[in-house]
Design a binder for these strands. Structure first.
Length: 217
DNA sequence: ATCCCGAGGG
DNA sequence: CCCTCTGGAT
């Protein structure tokens, strides 16, 4: 029988071909701009974020610049993203902290990142993984749901799921997998009515009707 | 209508 | 632990 590791390898491979450009969407910038982009991405899509970042980074390319911004001006730029008021405030406060405590540089340690206004576990994890090469596998609702359906973890605590996944998935695959699981969760492995018929992971999944044991599980 | 690629606050 | 903040996508 296939081990969890072997199953994970198969799943990663299928996801790679299904979502070829998963990680690169946010990775082509410096640490500060990446951090800002990830903060902005809450409750939205990369496409929406990518619409505003050119203007945003032209006006505020660095922490120093953004630290002096009027939050009201930032709000106008991120108007079309959800939570825009909160984000604008967080971005300015975050930048001020960056300047005040880290010389305007983005720290590469989890505790320091998470101490920043607006930066929590998920944001810190992505920055750590994409920019600093300390790959984690942040578990949000999508990742949680997909992983559970795939049967790669049964843990109820997301932190526990993350722990188990990191044991199974090699560091160099984690961030890509993170992003691809999210893409997959949003487009195919939907929460309410998953489109198992369109799912390329159906063969490897414990969830779809075709693979279900029915009784005697 | 529903849900959400989160984090802060009570 | 539960609520709130938000618009956009589905």
């Amino acid at each position: 029988m296939a081990s969890d590791q072997e199953r994970a390898v198969r799943i990663v491979a299928v996801l790679e071909s299904a979502y070829p450009r998963a990680v690169t969407a946010l990775s082509h910038r410096g640490a500060f701009q990446l951090l800002v982009a990830v903060v902005l991405s809450a409750r939205t899509t990369d496409a929406q974020v990518n619409k505003v970042t050119p203007d945003l980074f032209r006006l505020y390319p660095t922490a120093q610049a953004m630290a002096q911004a009027d939050p009201a001006d930032l709000e106008k730029l991120v108007r079309h993203l959800g939570l825009f008021r909160v984000k604008a405030r967080h971005l300015v406060e975050m930048s001020r902290e960056l300047v005040r405590r880290y010389g305007g540089e983005v720290p590469g340690e989890r505790a320091a990142l998470e101490s920043l206004p607006g930066v929590g576990h998920k944001t810190a994890g992505v920055v750590l993984g994409v920019f600093f090469g300390k790959p984690t596998l942040p578990v949000d609702t999508h990742v949680f749901r997909v992983i559970h359906r795939l049967g790669l973890s049964r843990a109820a605590d997301p932190a526990r799921v993350e722990e188990e996944l990191c044991r199974i998935v090699p560091p160099e695959s984690r961030m890509a997998l993170h992003h691809r699981l999210i893409d997959h969760g949003r487009t195919v492995c939907l929460g309410r009515s998953p489109r198992c018929g369109d799912c390329r992971l159906a063969r490897l999944c414990a969830y779809p009707a075709g693979n279900r044991e029915g009784s005697g599980g």
